[in-house]
Amino acid sequence: MNLQLTADGRLRHLLTLDGLPRAILTQILDTAESFMDVGEREVKKVPLLRGKSIFNLFFEPSTRTRTTFEIAAKRLSADVVNLNIATSSQTKGEAILDTVDNLAAMHADMFIVRHSQSGAAHFIARNVAPHISVVNAGDGRHAHPTQGLLDMFTIRRYKGAFHNLTVAVVGDVLHSRVARSQIHALTTLGVPEVRVIGPKTLLPAGVEQMGVQVFHNMEDGLRDCDVVIMLRLQNERMKGALLPSAQEYFKFFGLTPGKLALAKPDAIVMHPGPMNRGVEIDSEVADGPQSVILPQVTYGIAVRMAVMAMLAGGNG
């Protein structure tokens, strides 16, 4: 049973890009395209979700993702409630399901969920009333589907298509929900060569079974790439048993102008943010002409509008 799709194949929840059909991914990207101009209007609003209540349910703190979801919901005219549960009920020991049931009783239509545990969004989706949709805004190391989608949107905008690309995902794939969502989206959309590059300590077991080629050095991995996606290295991983130091990591896996020169001349550089300048990426690259890191943020709003509109439309 696919929790994410209705019996007739429409989007019911957005929990992961793993197993989502290409037609749905493309539909989301096309819908996002149609929302691109809303942000440029004088009145940045469309009435699609007027009267709908969307709850941002963040069990793990986040400013950036929560804000983009909030803006996206408001541009669709929905009512948005932000709950920073990391600092409220959960610390009082309330069970997740009690929180969810309470909010459902307030006639919520959609939950945007972030949680530190892989599978948390699935868990909530399995336990909500039939009229409520769940959007996974990041669960543990598992998935961050809207980030994956906005990255695909960015790639399509700059490269036009997917079928002729070589894409490298660089860095801490092991702990990255973003990387997993990107890899599923890239392979589903028909990118013929998806590479992951990183030290063996930061690549998950059996990663090649996700349909990627594995590289342990940047020189081989970046060669002739069309798209280079850098991953954030969490502070707590920079020193210890996984990596000896941030300096050594930057030397071997940080993206510098010299290493980027190995990719195609028109290659684009992406990063889900927030960046660690001088750890995974050199400022010269981050701020350089090949960087599309800021447009990614802008596109993120259109993509999240598309997801919410499709979910609300599918259930309304």
Binding site: S118, G140, R141, R180, A205, Q209, M210
Partner: peptide, 15 residues
């Protein structure tokens, strides 16, 4: 189990 499925699901592995 630390294998392809746990990697896909983002569950920390026991090798």
């Amino acid at each position: 189990h630390d294998g392809a499925i746990a990697s896909r699901l983002g569950l920390p592995g026991i090798p």
